[in-house]
Amino acid sequence: MTSAVQGAGAGRMARYLLSRLGGMLVVMAIVAVLVFILTRAAPGDPIAVLLGDQATAEDIARVQKVYGLDKPLPVQFALWLKELAHGNLGESIFLQRPVTQALWERAEPTTLLSLLSIAIATLIGVPCGIVSAVYRGKMVDQVFTGFAMLGASIPSFWFGLVLMQIFAVSLGWFPVSGYGEPGASLAARIWCLVLPATVLGLLNSALIIRFTRASMLDVLGEDYVRTARAKGLGEDVVVLKHALRNALVPIVTVIGLTVALLIGGAVVTETVFGLPGVGNLVVSAVIRRDYPVIQGALLVVAVIYVVINFAIDLLYTVLDPRVKY
C-alpha cells in the first residue's frame, strides 16, 4: 500500500517535472522571438555606431553586408535560430569574440556579486524581519520598518557614490572602480566587490525585511504557535523552529527572485563601480545596438531566471512537506 502510494507520488513528480520542462522550453521560445523582434524594432544601427561620425551611407551599407545585417529580418531570424540550435549565440559586432565567450568572461563578477549581495541581504533581512514581527509595534519594529522604507526608496547609484566617497576616496580601503588589476588574485577581485555588494545587499534587504515580517506575522497568529507556547516551549524555539520554518516559503521565494534579478539586473551598480558584469555588458550592447550580444545575453538571463524559479518551486517541497506536485 505504502509503496503504491510512493510510486504514485513519484509518477506525479515525474509528470510535473516533464510539464515544467516543456513549459520552460515554450517560455524560452517566446523569449527568443520577443528579444529578436524588440531589438530590431528599436531604432538605431550598430554599424553606424561602429563606423562613427564620418561614415557615409555607402560605408555603412558595405559593413552591414559583412555582418549579414543587409538580409531581410526573417532570414536573419532563421539564421540566428539555426545557430542557436547548435548552441551558438553568435559573434559580437564590437567585442570581436563569440557572445558565449563574452558572457562567460562576465559570469564570475556577476555570480560573485549576486552571491555576496544576497548573503548580505539575507543576513540582514531575515533576522531584522523576524525581530520586527516578534516586537510588532515596538520601537525596534518602527526602526526596522523605517529602514526597509528607506532601502526601498534610496537610488542605488546615489548610495553607491556615497559609500565610494567614504570608503574608497576618504578612507582608501577599497578601489573606486574596476575588478582588480591584470593578474589580480581571486581574493583581490572579491575585495573589489565588497562595496557594490554592500550597496545591493543593503538595498535588497529592505524587501526581505518586509516579506519576512509579513510572513512571520501571519504564522505567529496561528493556533500551532499558541499551542507551542502553551506547551511551555521557550520563545526562541517557538519563533525560530515552529514559526520561522512555516514562514519560509514566501521568504525563500523573494530571496530566489532577488538572486535572479541580480544576475541580469545589477546594471546601475555595475556601471557606477565599473564592474565587467553581465549588466554592464547588456547596457553597452544596447547603447551600441550590438544585436548578437543583446539577444544572447537576454536569452541566457531568461534561462537563469526560469531555472531559479523552477529550483524555488522544488525547494518548497523540502521546506514544506505538505506541498506536493
Partner: peptide, 20 residues
C-alpha cells in the same frame, strides 16, 4: 599602459581623487 573603461563620469572623478 592599462586603459580602463570607466563609463560613469563621477566614478572617474572619485577614482582620480582616490589615487586609483
Amino acid at each position: 599602459l592599462r586603459f580602463v573603461p570607466v563609463p560613469n563620469a563621477n566614478t572617474r572623478v572619485e577614482g582620480a581623487l582616490a589615487g586609483q
